[in-house]
């Protein structure tokens, strides 16, 4: 009896601590905040890895991608029932007013997290594109040469004036948070040929697109 009371007290206090951490949020609001926090933890842990600051850990990165997948898509939207928004929530009314946009972003996040999982084994650089068999030996020799490690996929820096002014789409516009999901050609993306940091940044762009439209504050 005493033991169960103790366990009960521990559970109650840990629930209390979690609720306090989110300024008194309870129920479904607390549940979705916990989901967001889990994804935030993953982003915080993987970012230094994707920048090459800490050792690259395929297993840890895969686990992180799986965590995001679990909290995105249908798992995310079901935690946003249409109801009066409590003061503890950071959601804004636009989320329900433009439900399809929110739902699309949640689905996009899920598919991008899956894409990240596919790109993670590639490490920090994109794999060499497939080449005809007779070139294989030359390619193997070349892979040891200086400069080949610079193949990280980055947004092009060679933008035209019109692109810089935002009146002409850039080559990497498909990853831009300003482009609606339906405008993206995500189906043409081959994550297995992508550097993990590029896939990771696409995830972050979807987070930013959603936060900028549907989260109060910054």
């Amino acid at each position: 009896m005493k033991r169960s009371i103790t366990i009960g007290a521990i559970i109650a206090s840990s629930l209390g601590a979690a609720a306090l951490a989110h300024s008194g949020a309870t129920g479904v609001v607390l549940e979705r905040m916990n989901g967001m926090s889990a994804m935030k933890k993953v982003m915080g842990e993987l970012a230094p890895m994707m920048r090459g600051e800490v050792p690259y850990d395929v297993a840890a990165a895969q686990k992180g991608a799986a965590t995001i997948m679990a909290h995105a898509g249908g798992g995310m939207v079901k935690l946003f029932p249409e109801e009066a928004i409590p003061a503890t929530s950071y959601a804004v009314p636009a989320l329900w007013e433009r439900w399809d946009d929110f739902s699309d972003l949640a689905d996009l996040l899920e598919s991008q997290a899956f894409g990240l999982a596919m790109a993670i084994p590639n490490g920090l650089t994109a794999p060499e594109p497939p080449s005809p068999p007779h070139d294989m030996e030359a390619m193997n020799n070349m892979s040891d040469m200086v400069g080949m490690t610079d193949a990280v996929v980055q947004p092009s820096q060679d933008l035209t004036v019109a692109q810089l002014m935002g009146v002409e789409p850039t080559a990497d516009a498909h990853t831009s948070p300003t482009v609606l999901p339906e405008e993206r050609e995500s189906s043409s993306l081959d994550y297995t040929m992508m550097a993990a940091p590029a896939a990771f940044e696409m995830v972050s762009q979807t987070c930013a697109a959603c936060h900028s439209q549907f989260r109060r504050g910054s």
Partner: peptide
Amino acid sequence: VANMAYALRTGITPDGDVLGGSMAEAIAQ
């Protein structure tokens, strides 16, 4: 310097949050 330069491109802060609000626009545009 490294994580801020990265945040100014990706929006990812050191604690893993991804910036929204008007800063998301300041980063994207």
